[in-house]
């Protein structure tokens, strides 16, 4: 029997108390215990970026993070940045500029883009490409995604 770990996590501004198996990833806990299914499980090895969330202000791959390691930390998921009655400017820009195809990578792209714009408010195209290098889009819609992120501030 695995000894459970008592995890305290601030998720999208709300304090959560959970009892978890220490083997579980942050992604798994977000999706299955907290029912926040915006972060996606793609490669499960830190290569695709579909599971990107913002941990203590920084974009990370939640599949490569043990939930127990995040005890006392604060996490923001795509659910936390989406207003109840509309879209975040990054989401809006992706919709308007055709930066969405199947949508699987989109939530990760959104979180990576938000973290990027937070540290570099006026990014160059190279900044955007570098900031999104860890997010794979298998529809290969990169050009429009990069354009959409470049266009966020101008809208």
């Amino acid at each position: 029997m695995v000894k459970k770990f008592h995890l305290t996590l601030n998720v999208n501004g709300e304090q959560k108390e959970l009892l978890i198996d220490p083997r579980r990833s942050l992604l798994d806990v977000l999706r299955n215990d907290l029912e926040l299914r915006g972060a996606h499980r793609g490669c499960d090895s830190g290569d695709c970026g579909a599971c990107t969330v913002i941990l203590n202000g920084k974009a990370i791959t939640s599949c490569m993070t043990l939930a127990a390691d995040c005890d006392g930390d604060s996490v923001i998921t795509v659910e936390g940045i989406t207003p109840a009655d509309g879209l975040h400017p990054v989401q809006k820009s992706l919709v308007e500029d055709g930066g969405i195809q199947c949508g699987f990578c989109t939530t990760g792209m959104v979180m990576a883009a938000i973290a990027l714009l937070d540290s570099i408010p006026h990014p160059t195209e190279e900044d955007v490409r570098e900031g999104l290098a860890g997010n794979l889009c298998r529809c290969t819609g990169y050009k429009k995604i990069v354009e959409a992120v470049m266009n966020v501030e101008r809208k």
Binding site: G46, T52, A59, I60, T61, A112, L116, G131, A133, N135
Partner: peptide
Amino acid sequence: MASVQIRNL
């Protein structure tokens, strides 16, 4: 090295 998400970890 890697991506920003990995570099942050």
